[in-house]
Design a binder for these strands. Structure first.
Lengths: 134, 134, 134, 134
DNA sequence: GTGGTCTAGACCACG
DNA sequence: GTGGTCTAGACCACC
């Protein structure tokens, strides 16, 4: 399956779908000109309301990453992969920067912050996804 | 005065106040037994709705970090510094972990993520990037 | 062949076909008693779904502009040219009026609207704007 | 009242709201920093579902013409008037051009098209709004 | 009070 | 079958 949704997350479901689609486009999992899963199908897969999927798709249209093919479905635009690769880096960098700035302003010494970063970095990298060898 | 509020931030104002007060308590900027600014004063200073300050204070009371002194104001509890120092580390760590996990699932290679982390860490610590003078 | 279809246009494809056929009948490009291209042929030519062509033809039948000739195809009716000539004027007038009314309600001054109309009229008629050579 | 909605129009209600707000911003009827009517209020006025209004507002946010002031309402951005003035001209021009190009390709002679344009232009301008003298 | 999110379900146009 | 629009109503966070 393409995506995983966490309903308890503080981030809206439609944004989770949106971002995961962008990441998938950046990674080449979703190719230009191909059709994304239909609103109804994806809604069934993710066990969410079709309107929620439609909203994510609508925003992706607004971003120029999807376009409608009438009566057929939604198609990934040619520009999508490039744009998503760029945005992916930006998203990741921005979120990391925000967390680091907050840490910096917490009163913790830079060395303490750095230590935490290294610890968490190892945890995250050492936590293999989908049963990879550790 | 103490805090800086970003109204356009995605984080609620009352949480910004709350967290910055905790950081100040952890850092010793706010000492036990001393009084925090009145709701109205702080609201005027920060140019926010008094209800917003009141909510932050209410939660700090609920956490046992502030206590009412009848007819006088809100006082920082003796336990506040210790508790805030502990919580500070937890907050910083949690936010960093979340950002790193998101980076991990973005499709970027771990080496790329690490590179971004190092770059941003230097920026935040004020160390010069690419040979800039400090 | 006859028509040009813009799939990304906001107007439905079947209506584009329909209207262009009417215009062709009005102009005499399509003559009474002659046969229109088969659904499949036209669909291939225009690279659209045969259902789409079929729908346009169906509506033209409903309008009395096409009639079936059993085992042979669809034939242009004797009344078609007259009817299309009349309708052509109505279509053009209606669309122009709608655009002008919208312009009227945009808050632009009538003189500004008129200026835009003149400019676009010249462009469309191929007349040179601002002293360009024709 | 600010706007008038035609439910029978072929254009979606949320787009009618959207465009009329843009026109109002362009005309200065809606000023920067002021709040637009609340979703619920406008929905009541127009007798449409609040979600429909919310959708129009959401798209205006996406265009950078509105911004949320949390717990307070939606505010017109400083850039809105300029952007809307520009867009107003573009919208009006585009729609007129489309209608004129269609007229041009209808098979009508340029002189006939021009005649229709002049007639409709007079009608539209001669139709005074809100009881102006003719 | 405000906007934001989500669900449920209906209807329509298009292919 | 597809997406698009609209309605109705619920719940939430924030101010």
């Amino acid at each position: 399956m393409l995506f995983s949704i966490q309903a308890n997350n503080d981030r809206p479901i439609y944004l989770q779908i949106l971002q995961q689609m962008k990441f998938a486009m950046a990674a080449g999992v979703l190719q230009p000109d191909s059709l994304v899963p239909s609103v109804r199908d994806l809604a069934r897969q993710l066990v969410v309301n079709p309107n929620t999927v439609a909203r994510a798709y609508r925003e992706l249209q607004g971003d120029g990453l999807l376009q409608t093919v009438r009566g057929t479905g939604l198609q990934i635009t040619p520009e999508a992969p490039d744009r998503c690769r760029q945005e992916r880096g930006r998203i990741v960098r921005d979120r990391l920067r925000a967390a680091l700035e907050e840490a910096r302003h917490s009163g913790l010494a830079p060395s303490e912050v750095e230590q935490i970063v290294q610890q968490e970095l190892q945890k995250v990298n050492g936590k293999p996804a989908r049963g990879e060898a550790p």
